[in-house]
């Protein structure tokens, strides 16, 4: 059953922010289709009234108290950053709202 179109793969790529070559699109389409076929098995399980498990073992989590710890030094913050300007992360312009690219 072919249910993943090339267009869908490209749109998933955009949503995931992944540049994909044509051959990658082709491979991904094939692989996702075959993986999704295996996923179909789940449809046969009767899950009526079954709670979705969002946290394993009903984990009881803890909270932290509102205490301040020392911040990372600015040099540590930027140690690995690809581009830095005036102690800010420098990125290509975020399009001003309203303008189309």
């Amino acid at each position: 059953m072919s249910r993943v179109t090339e267009e869908e793969i490209r749109s998933l790529g955009e949503l995931s922010r992944l540049a994909l070559s044509d051959s990658e699109v082709e491979t991904l389409k094939r692989d996702l289709e075959s993986i999704l076929e295996h996923m179909d098995a789940l449809a046969e399980v009767d899950t009526t009234g079954v709670q979705p498990m969002t946290h394993v073992l009903g984990t009881i989590g803890h909270l932290r108290s509102d205490e301040v710890c020392e911040s990372l030094a600015v040099e540590e913050v930027f140690a690995a950053s690809p581009e830095r300007t005036e102690d800010c992360f420098d990125v290509p312009a975020i399009l001003p709202p309203g303008s189309n690219k």
Binding site: A80, P82, K101
Partner: peptide, 25 residues
């Protein structure tokens, strides 16, 4: 996403392209 750490690609392009190229590569 190539903003705070890691290898960035497409730095001179539009933001969406920078993201896609960084992650794609």
């Amino acid at each position: 996403d190539g903003v705070r750490y890691g290898k960035r690609k497409g730095n001179e392009e539009a933001l969406q392209n920078m993201y896609e190229k960084t992650r794609g590569a």
